[in-house]
């Protein structure tokens, strides 16, 4: 198990180096003069301009800047946020917990709803419920996430005010006790997490359905059936555990989409996470923050898929024993 984690962590290093190189190359390729962006339209004497460029290291050759870009990133120094006047690491450190909380809640909901819907699918394959769930899943997986968020606000926060329409805390929550604050945050997270989870949940449900139908046809399920177990029992106790394992891998593969979806969901719901911070930084042309959050989002995906592999290893004795992962 430890070797699995160590191997995966090591293989992440070239990937992160690739992301850093790619972002550096994009910066270099982008049109526009960085000095003009920094200085604006104000008339500046040439020597001041040279001093400012030197202060940001923009007067050095690209290769030298590339090396210092890579080494400072390796040291954990991601630069200075121009729009917020703070180190980028501080900005992102504040935005990370809300995103992990939202993403984690969405991941849990996605698995829960996907497993439940997939099981309902398999109760009577080809029946009316199966067909209607297929249609609902297809629609949910096809509507734009941000639009679903707006409709959810309209229906569940305005027409029927069950949930708050935006932000992460109620007004005045600073003075509350920790349990009340946590419950408040969970209440605020419910709607965005549901919206974020819905599309992926539909994918999981289809996957679970296919796995269940496969398992139901296999020897162990038919043997249980032959011993007199009811269809429901065979489905829940025999077929579902066999079909659930690969779902963990699927959830890991779906992570990049979850993290991407978090951007628009956070913008729609005013959730103070990485997506919102990145979006604000794009509008403010605060490139160091945008660059760093691309990197951090990739780290999140790598960490998440590592967790998925560990979860799979814990759930599946064959993987635990060191057999190759079936992809």
């Amino acid at each position: 198990m430890l070797r699995l984690v160590a191997r995966r962590a090591l293989s992440a290093i070239p990937l992160l180096a690739f992301v850093l190189t790619l972002t550096f190359a994009l910066l270099e390729a982008a049109p526009g003069d960085p000095a003009a962006t920094l200085l604006g339209d104000a008339p500046v004497p040439p020597e001041t301009r040279a001093r400012i460029l030197a202060a940001y290291g923009l007067d050095r050759p690209p290769l030298s800047r590339y090396v210092s870009w890579m080494t400072s990133a390796a040291r954990g120094d991601l630069g200075w946020s121009l729009s917020r006047g703070r180190p980028v690491t501080k900005v992102l450190a504040a935005a990370l917990p809300p995103t992990i909380g939202l993403g984690g809640a969405a991941l849990a909901l996605q698995l829960l709803l996907g497993l439940a819907a997939g099981t309902l699918h398999a109760v009577r394959p080809g029946g009316a419920l199966d067909r209607w769930l297929s249609v609902a899943g297809l629609v949910l997986a096809s509507v734009p996430t941000f639009w679903l968020g707006l409709m959810a606000i309209l229906l569940l926060a305005v027409a029927v005010p069950l949930f708050p329409p935006s932000s992460m805390h109620s007004v005045g929550a600073e003075g509350w006790g920790a349990p009340a604050r946590a419950a408040d945050a969970a209440w605020h997270a419910a709607l965005p997490a549901l919206v974020l989870a819905s599309g992926s949940a539909a994918v999981v449900a289809r996957f679970v359905r296919a796995g269940l139908l496969r398992s139901l046809g296999e020897g162990f399920a038919r043997a249980a059936r032959a011993r007199g177990a009811s269809h429901g029992r065979v489905l829940l106790r025999h077929a579902l555990p066999a079909a659930a394992g690969p779902v963990i891998t699927l959830a890991g593969l779906q992570l990049p989409f979850l993290v991407s979806g978090a951007v628009v969901v956070e913008v729609v719901f005013g959730w103070p996470g990485m997506g919102r911070v990145t979006y604000d930084a794009v509008l403010a042309q605060d490139l160091p923050v945008v660059l760093a959050s691309v990197l951090l989002a990739t780290v999140l995906v790598i960490a998440g898929s590592l967790l998925a592999d560990v979860g799979l290893a814990l759930a599946d004795p064959r993987v635990r024993a060191g057999a190759p992962l079936v992809r």
Binding site: F18, V19, P256, F257, V259, V264, L287, V294, S305
Partner: peptide, 24 residues
């Protein structure tokens, strides 16, 4: 193929945000 795998694991919308910040 390594490049393809790497590109797949960068969350797309974050990359698009960066590109949108760089290009008009």
């Amino acid at each position: 193929m390594r490049a393809t795998d790497a590109a797949l694991s960068i969350p797309r919308l974050f990359l698009l945000l960066l590109l949108a910040a760089l290009f008009r």
